[in-house]
Design a protein around this nucleic acid. Structure first.
Length: 306
DNA sequence: CGCATTTGACCTGCGC
DNA sequence: GCGCAGGTCAAATGCG
């Protein structure tokens, strides 16, 4: 599988990979957003020149990032094919490899699964990671990282499904409480979700999904096409190899007051195929609520600037 | 009043 | 067997 075929590297995303886990100043985001093609009605010549400069700068940055992304994809592909080759040669038993091979397996086990999962449990031992990996494969576990306001104490990750909270616990490895949810959309649905704040970054919620939904996504219930996976952010569409998706609610809050389904996800892993990304974009742009919210946000910003 | 959430109690698995 | 930690249950509570 060619990674570059999943990710359209020509996407005009003004992202900075060095800041993925930092709080990007909202003002800067807004400025960048508005410097990308939306002109204020009464723009002076000076500011338009500055805008052009900014646009050039952003384009250059974008190009650079595109190259970086391509390179990253190539590296990922190489690692992935290595892993596949490795697993072909050493089926099954490698996942439960003995302690003897600890030093040998550590490199492989750390590089690939961490890359796929992108989680922050790097401190766990190889044995533990093997066990976890095995469990994840068995129970179809996926993690979703959601950036929220650090002051937001609620452990709510809106993914479109209906969840019923059935417990909360403070765990040893993390001072933040962990909330336990069951899917309440269908009584027989076995899917569970654990939500806890990241130890590293309190503004990041880590949602761990276990199992697969045995019912369609609620948002698909009133959508005629069954291919609208774009808004499906639950485990069903993301569990193939425990991928990681980061959603940034804080930025969305700063730009619109729209509902959670209007959030544009920030994909942290190339595991999410290009098709999915495109479908997400399409479903968002087709969504009248999203468009209305966007228009409101833009006009509001323009009024604010004037 | 019904439903969701909270929270302390209980259960279970694991390491020593 | 015991203690600990994570996970689940269920009564109490709150909210619409």
């Amino acid at each position: 599988m060619d990674c570059s075929s999943w990710i359209n590297t020509s996407l005009d995303l003004n992202i900075n990979p060095h800041r993925l886990h930092e709080e990007v100043p909202k003002k800067e985001v807004e400025n960048n957003f508005f410097s990308l093609g939306i002109k204020k009605p009464s723009v002076k010549e000076e500011s338009s020149g500055a805008l052009v400069e900014e646009l050039k700068r952003v384009s250059a940055e974008n190009k650079k990032l595109t190259e970086m992304l391509t390179e990253m994809c190539e590296n990922y592909n190489a690692l992935r094919s290595n892993l596949m080759e490795y697993l072909r040669k050493n089926p099954e038993k490698e996942l439960s490899s003995s302690k003897k091979r600890k030093s040998e397996s550590s490199n492989n086990n750390n590089s690939i699964p961490m890359g796929v999962n992108g989680n922050s449990e790097s401190s766990s031992t190889d044995e533990e990671s093997c066990k976890k990996l095995k469990e994840e494969i068995k129970t179809k576990v996926s993690r979703v990282y959601v950036r929220t306001e650090a002051s937001d104490t609620s452990l709510i990750v809106k993914d479109g499904y209906q969840w019923r909270k059935y417990g909360q616990k403070v765990t040893r490895d993390n001072p933040s409480p962990r909330a336990y949810f069951k899917c309440s959309f269908a009584p027989s649905c076995p899917v569970k979700k654990k939500v806890q704040r990241s130890v590293d970054d309190q503004s990041v919620l880590v949602a761990t999904y276990e199992g697969e939904h045995n019912h369609p996504h609620p948002s698909q219930m009133d959508v005629t096409t069954g291919s609208n996976r774009g808004v499906t952010l639950g485990s069903a569409s993301l569990t193939s190899s425990a991928p990681t998706v980061t959603l940034d609610w804080t930025k969305s809050k700063s730009s619109t007051n729209s509902e959670s389904k209007n959030i544009i996800p920030k994909i942290e892993s190339p595991e999410v195929p290009q098709v999915l990304v495109e479908q997400m974009a399409t479903s968002l742009t087709k969504d009248p609520n999203f468009r209305a919210a966007l228009v409101a946000a833009i006009s509001g910003k323009m009024l604010h600037n004037n």
